[in-house]
Amino acid sequence: MTLLAQVAPTAGGTAEVVVFWVFAVIALGSAIAVISLRNVVHGAVMLVLNFLSIGGLFLTLESAFLSVIQVLVYGGAIMVLFLFVIMLLGVDRDDLLQADLRTRVLAIAGGALLAGAVLFAFVGPYTSEASVCGPDAPAPGPGEVACAGLAEAYDEDDGAGARFLGRSLFTTYTYPFELAALLLTVATIGAVILARRRDLEPEDEDLADLDAAAADDLDGDDLDGASGAAAERHVAGDGPGTTERGG
């Protein structure tokens, strides 16, 4: 890791190639693991691994700042939330939740088709000599695409691109940035409201009284008996996830 951290920003070197292939393999393998592992927690861990390798790839893309943000937000927050929910609900196995054969064939065929299209589109113009990033890359021939590289775009003392990104965010993209802040606020409020779980705590007078009107509306949504069953199970399960696994 040490070595990696020091060599990664150097564009065009063999180190980059090695690092790329290592992380690419990890990323693809973990991605396939995510969609194929039956155990949800294993899938989530694989997804964390995938995110970390994406973070590594960001390093080779001269975007160290993004790399750290990737680890911090995806690895540190989003996936923890995922695992938290999985464990809260105690649903780490989904043996019964598989698609039927026809759907599987169709899905894989469609995915393969799209993947083929991607390969078809990028192999060639983007995989030529000229597409090796860096200021000293050869001029692109016809049908080839050049890669400028970020090294000269960054400030002298800004190897990670934090300044580079920050300047853009606070100048060109001010309004999107503010909108993103608003979006986060709204999402927070929405999550708080959704997480009230008033229907499960009828004995709690405070909440029942506060939300009597809203609860009336929601009662109509309860179209089948599943909710009642879930509530029962939740109360009885006490420690989530304790009774589900078979070893």
Binding site: A64, F65, V68, V71, A160
Partner: peptide
Amino acid sequence: LHVGVLWVLAL
């Protein structure tokens, strides 16, 4: 690292 402080937080 250029982003040493964030590295601490990330880890």
